Simulated scan of single mutants.
Amino acid sequence: MPPKRGLEAAEAEDATVQLRRHKSATEEAFAELVCPITFSLPVDPVTAEDGNVYERSAIEEWLKQQLKSPVTNLAMGTKLQPALRVKNMIRAMVTSGALTGDKVDAWKLKLEEEEEVAEMLRKAEAGDGGAMRRLGKWYKYGEKGLAKDLAKAFEWYEKSHEAGDASGTCCLGTCYLVGMGVPECQSRANTLLSEAAGRGSKLACCTLGRAYGDGLWGFPKDEKMARRYYSMVASAAIHDLTGDAKEEAATWLREHPAA
């Protein structure tokens, strides 16, 4: 019978070997799961015609530019198949703790963002004007994993306005004001911003105050009109304005007292 201490050492060494093998196998699996374009774990994995798995948005964008495999550089079509097994495998390995690290943290964040976008889309499709406006903002700034797309931002702001969201009306007016996703139209901007201000949008009030106060965006410089809209900021019911902008209105009114 081998000495107890020697047996314990042998068992410890065997456990270390097994751990190394497990770690090596996990690392190999991890490498196979990473998208060859983004070098991150795909949230929406698809199998392309070259047999490799990619993040859907990444390979779709790639194929818009060139019909070649990112891996082999050989000609490839645009047909993509959802890689459900890979998706389930990643989720299971992350949930179990088998996969960890920065790439996993990034995957979790991206998954949360996609779920948040999906939830916002459900609300928007149900007629929620605020959700429509939020989607417009995300497309405007390229947030929540969405690619920056001013045309889509405009579309969502327009839907928000049509759904009766006053802040959405303000955002749509701003689109016409600066030509974001639509040609500039000062008269249309004025109509929309005036409507939003009348319905209680602090942001619309401040925007019109600035437009008239400084003669911006084709508006005539008109101190009376600027004072009118800046004065409305404090009492407007919809808090869609940042603290800095609120201070802007207060500062302008202090510096331009009524005669």
Score class of each variant (00 low, 15 high):
P2L: 11
R5Y: 14
A10M: 05
E13T: 07
T16K: 12
L19E: 15
L19A: 15
H22R: 10
S24I: 00
S24F: 04
S24K: 13
A25V: 07
T26E: 11
E27C: 09
E28H: 08
A29T: 12
P36N: 04
F39T: 11
S40L: 14
L41K: 12
V43D: 09
V43P: 00
V46F: 01
V46E: 03
A48W: 09
E49C: 12
G51W: 05
E55N: 09
S57T: 04
A58K: 12
L63W: 12
K64N: 13
L67Y: 08
L67K: 14
L67G: 10
V71H: 07
A75L: 09
M76R: 02
L80D: 02
Q81D: 05
Q81E: 05
A83D: 13
A83R: 04
K87P: 06
N88C: 08
A92K: 15
M93Y: 13
V94W: 06
S96L: 01
S96P: 00
G97M: 01
L99T: 04
G101K: 04
V104I: 02
V104P: 05
K108L: 04
K110D: 08
K110R: 09
E115H: 10
E115Q: 13
E116D: 13
E116S: 14
A118M: 05
E119I: 04
M120Q: 09
L121Q: 15
K123P: 07
A124S: 13
A126M: 08
G129A: 10
A131R: 02
R133Y: 12
G136L: 10
K137L: 12
K137R: 11
W138A: 08
Y141W: 14
L146Y: 15
K148N: 11
A151M: 15
K152G: 02
F154D: 12
E158C: 10
E162N: 06
A163Y: 11
A163V: 05
G168L: 07
T169V: 00
T169L: 01
C171R: 11
G173E: 00
T174L: 15
Y176F: 06
L177V: 00
V178R: 04
S187I: 01
S187Y: 07
R188T: 07
N190Y: 06
A196L: 02
G200M: 10
K202R: 15
K202A: 03
A204M: 09
C205A: 13
C206K: 05
C206T: 04
A211E: 01
A211Y: 02
Y212T: 02
G213R: 06
G213Y: 10
D214M: 09
G215D: 11
G215N: 10
G218H: 04
D222S: 03
D222I: 00
Y230T: 03
S231V: 04
M232D: 05
H239Q: 09
D240G: 07
L241P: 02
A245P: 00
E248I: 03
L253C: 01
E255V: 05
P257R: 11
P257S: 06
A259I: 11
